[in-house]
Amino acid sequence: MSDQVVVLLSAYSLVLLGVAQGLQALGRRSTSPWASRTLVGHLRVTGHQPQPLRDDDWPHSEVPSLYGGIAMVAALAAGALSLATLVLHHRGAVAALPLVVLGLSVLSLLRLGRSVRLRPAPGRQRDQAAGAAAAALPLEADRPLR
């Protein structure tokens, strides 16, 4: 296996790890459209009252496992690829690359495993609280026109 291929596979594994981290962050946020802070403006204009959201409401109940599961697969894929690269190419300075990626993959998997055990994530609860606060804001229509 050439050095070039080792670099390419290591860089690709690193991208997979980045995807895993991003998905993990997304999975910790609330997906309720009414609790999401991105819809605060919409909420104020429409006055649509949010329905109470529990963590076991489907499909929101699937969100942590959806994102967390895909993130774990991506991290596992990154680890497996870098380990296999290391097995085939473990001499020379370039071998340090898959070794580093392998270490990062293990760390990432440990972190993901811990966050899955901690469901619901604190971030989700915080988002829900923010959503509830947003719902309490006065409607745009109630404000005096300037």
Partner: peptide
């Protein structure tokens, strides 16, 4: 879904790029 994603991201996509 995981099996298909694994097939693509771990095998076919990197192999195809190479």
């Amino acid at each position: 879904n995981i099996g298909l994603a694994w097939m693509s991201f771990v095998s076919l996509l990197p192999l195809g790029v190479l």
